[in-house]
Each structure stands twice: as structure tokens, then as C-alpha cells.
Amino acid sequence: MIEVPESYVLVKQINQVLKGKVIKHAEANHSPHAFAWYTGNIDEYQEKLFGKTITSADVHGGTVRIRAEDVVMIISTPIRFHRESEKLPQKHQLYIQFEDSTSITCAVQMWGCMFCFNENDPEGIPQNYVINNNNPSPLEDMFDEEYFKTLLKKEKLSSLSAKAFLTTEQRITGLANGSAQDILWNAKIHPKRKMSTLSEDELKEMYKSLKSVVTDMMVQGGRDTERDLFGNPGGYKTVLSKKTVGKPCPICNTIIRKEAYLGGSIYYCPSCQKL
């Protein structure tokens, strides 16, 4: 899936490059993937999209929402733009070609949705499309400290870790494991710390770090572990990621560690983020 910083980057680029292009061909599930999700009959994607003009794109619940007139695409996977002479990737789960012979492809990383539906057809609109529409992302003004406190009140904090609070159940729209690493490092909170052990000051630091780190990631064109619409890595240099494990922490020079946790990986500095 893509995370909220990259979704904003992709939306900006889509509005600059794809807006006004007319769809000539659409194909879903070219390379079947167990965790690729679609809406309705995938064989009807061509019928739904043929001849439609890309009118706009925006961020929806941490995903990318592309409007082609009255048809909406909700995409939570990386999106790649291809020029006319460019070779397409061998594997992809969504392919859209435009009349000028440029195209985009989507390829699932772990899991992802590529919904396509007509907004005038209530029966075809996914239920979670409506639900997620009301949840602000960390990059929106509505996601202020008071809103953050309402999220804390909804949880059984005694059993929830800092990582679980930030990344599970999509309680924070568009946030997942990749972005959470630097958020927690910046707040000096270990990913395994129970939320019930955090002081008011630490919770305040978590909120401030969440807002500032995600904003930095977006402003700098996404993280250096991800790629934009044109295949370029983002300009934000991750402190904790697969690129930095085994290297010294930029603050204290302690070696950054990696561990398996909650079905994924955590990266942390054992000195700056004490358990």
C-alpha cells in the first residue's frame, strides 16, 4: 500500500500530468495477486473507463482518488507513469493506456486496492469508500491535537503498543509501518512501549512528531524508500528503515536495530528509544 505522504505526492503529479488525458484501454488483474482487490467484474473496467477523460485527482482516506468524469478510481498501490516508447513492467495489476499512447500501471506491494466504479451507481460504491471519507489524514488541519486526543480515548491503552496505535486498524488515515518508524524515533518513543505508560508530555510529543514528520515527508517528495509517479525515489532521507538498519543513529551513534514485531518489522535506536 502507499502511505499518506506519498499519496499527496502522487496526487499532485497526476493532476499535473494526467489531467485531460482520454482513456483508450484499461486492463485489471493482468498479473493475478492474492491481495489485489477490485470492485465488481474486473472484465468491465474497460467498458467503464473507455473514452473517459481524467478530470482530477485527490487524496481520499490515504489513498489516491482519480476521477475520470463520472467514474472514480480508488488506488492504494504505487502508480507508475510510462511514456509512449517506454517498456511496461512484466507484472502489473492495473494498466490504463491513454489516446496519446502514454499509460500508467499499478503494481501491488503486499496488498492494495484498485477500485473502479460509477458514482451515480449506489450499489457499485464500496462501503468503506463512504466510511473512510470522514476521517482526516495527519496532513489536514482537522487532524489537530483535540482530534488526536479523541483517538486516544477510543482505545484500550493498557494493552496497545505505540506501533499498534499508529499503524493498525487505520485509526490514523493513511499511516502505516514505514512512516511510523521515524515518527516514533523523533518522539523518542520505543515502538513496543505500551500507550498506557506514556506521560502527557510524551503523548504530546507523539502528536507533534506525527504532524511534523509526515509533513516533512510530503514536502520533500516522499520517502527515499518509495518512488513517485515517474519512478524517482523521494527526497526525504529516512532515519529508520531498511536503508539504515545496522548504521549509527544520527543523534547518539548507537547502531540502529531491526526486529520482527506484530507481523512486520520495527526499526529503532535502543539508546534514544528506551523500552
Rank of each mutant, 00 (worst) to 15 (best):
Q13S: 13
T77F: 00
P89L: 13
L184R: 06
G231D: 01
T168C: 01
H82V: 01
K48C: 04
V72N: 05
G264W: 08
L166W: 07
T105D: 06
E6N: 14
V245A: 02
I74T: 08
F35G: 06
I183L: 00
Q13Y: 03
Y8T: 08
V219L: 12
K21E: 03
S103W: 09
M1K: 15
L157I: 06
P191V: 05
S241M: 05
K21I: 05
E3C: 14
Y45W: 10
I74S: 07
P78W: 03
N128K: 15
K12P: 09
S265R: 12
Q97M: 13
D182V: 06
F143E: 01
P248Q: 03
S7A: 15
C113R: 10
P78F: 02
D141K: 15
S76I: 02
Y207P: 10
F98H: 11
T225E: 04
H30T: 04
Y38T: 01
A260D: 09
T254I: 02
S199W: 08
I104F: 02
A26R: 08
Q220F: 04
Y261N: 03
T77D: 03
K24H: 10
S85L: 12
K153N: 14
T105Y: 02
T168R: 09
P5R: 09
S31K: 11
Q90T: 12
V213G: 00
E145A: 08
A34H: 10
Q220K: 15
G263T: 04
Y8A: 03
A107V: 12
C116L: 12
N177V: 05
L240R: 00
Y8E: 09
K211L: 08
V4K: 10
L175W: 02
E145P: 01
P248K: 00
F35H: 14
I125K: 14
F50V: 11
E119F: 04
E169H: 06
H82M: 00
M142N: 15
L18I: 11
Q93P: 03
T215N: 13
T150K: 15
I172K: 01
Q90S: 12
E140W: 00
P233V: 02
K91H: 11
F35I: 00
Q109P: 10
H92R: 12
C249M: 04
Y8K: 11
E205W: 07
M206G: 06
K149W: 05
I189M: 06
